[in-house]
Design a protein around this nucleic acid. Structure first.
Length: 279
DNA sequence: AATACCAGCGTTATTACGTCA
DNA sequence: GGTGACGTAATAACGCTGGTA
């Protein structure tokens, strides 16, 4: 296996995810997850960055991102990191975006996008006339920089995107896609974490429910006992030790000091063993 | 109202790695 | 031990949709 799930390179600072209009809230708004309040739980911290591990692996890989970005931007060919960066299906988007005209920074991004997705004839020729999607692997350094940037801002404005792309020798579109995918992975991881927590909640509540049902049954049995019937109201669960499930007061149990009612004092006599068969 | 931009989402395709015969 | 087939996880890239300015 290449990487374990924990190696997802997700140093989840869990207040990180933005699920709605994050582009308006550039930095680190808390997640809008319905159980976002759970995110302060310590188990969230078990997800550590695996960048080191990933780095080691990526170090051994061939860096396919060798061409300078300037060359790409000037020539308008596809990403320097991939021999073919889009396929036939990608053409539709290229065409659509090719018609869109931006201004200023957006223009650069738009041009960059279309250039990184076009299906060039050269590329098709290189692959036997059949366009296919060739996927690059980002280098360790590129991944690290992207990861660091993501920790600071999980979204980028066009200027930041372009600057980062230039810095990394990638297209703005690639940076954009990387951030999209990264946000998706963060969200997925968060969902897994939330799910795990809810599972534990269910388990705990189920166990608690069992315990309370048992306690209620015991109290009912106690109440129906002929010797006790007619005395004062039975005690509530306040008199039940939550740890050992005993009615409070056995001589060897000093964890709680509960003032025993006359009813209980009697119960601790001959009837105790009946009420608590386990003792 | 029309348009452009962008994030989110679901999906596909590719890559790298582990396992096993 | 080397090798090829196969399975799987990770992830780059895509199209679509809806919200916003």
């Amino acid at each position: 296996m290449m990487m374990g799930k924990e190696d997802l390179s997700l140093s989840l600072s869990l207040g990180f995810a933005q699920t709605h209009h994050p582009h308006k809230l550039m930095n680190l708004k808390p997640t809008s997850s319905p159980i976002s309040n759970l995110q302060m739980f310590p188990w969230n911290q078990t997800f550590v960055s695996s960048s080191d591990h990933q780095s080691q692996q990526l170090f051994t890989k061939i860096n396919v991102n060798s061409l300078p970005v300037d060359l790409e931007e000037e020539t308008g060919v596809s990403s320097p990191n991939s021999t073919i960066s889009s396929n036939v299906s990608g053409k539709r988007r290229s065409e659509r975006e090719g018609t869109s005209g931006g201004a200023g920074d957006d223009l650069d991004v738009t041009l960059d996008r279309s250039s990184s997705r076009g299906t060039s004839e050269e590329e098709e020729e290189e692959y036997g006339g059949e366009a296919c999607r060739k996927k690059l692997r980002l280098s360790k350094d590129q991944s690290a920089v992207l990861e660091d940037t993501f920790k600071e801002h999980n979204t980028l404005n066009p200027k930041q995107k372009l600057a980062l792309a230039k810095k990394l020798g990638l297209t703005a579109r690639q940076v954009e896609v990387w951030f999209q995918n990264r946000r998706a992975r963060t969200k997925l991881k968060q969902t897994e974490v939330d799910c795990e927590y809810l599972k534990r909640c269910v388990e705990k509540l189920t166990e608690e429910n069992r315990r309370l049902e048992k306690e209620a049954a015991e109290l009912r049995a106690l109440k129906l006992s002929p010797r006790l019937y007619g005395h004062m109201s039975p005690p509530t669960t306040l008199l039940m030790c939550p740890s050992c499930e005993r009615v409070a007061g056995p001589s060897n149990h000093n964890q709680r000091s509960v003032s025993l009612s006359p009813w209980l004092q009697m119960a601790h006599g001959s009837t105790f063993d009946v009420v608590h068969p386990r003792s």
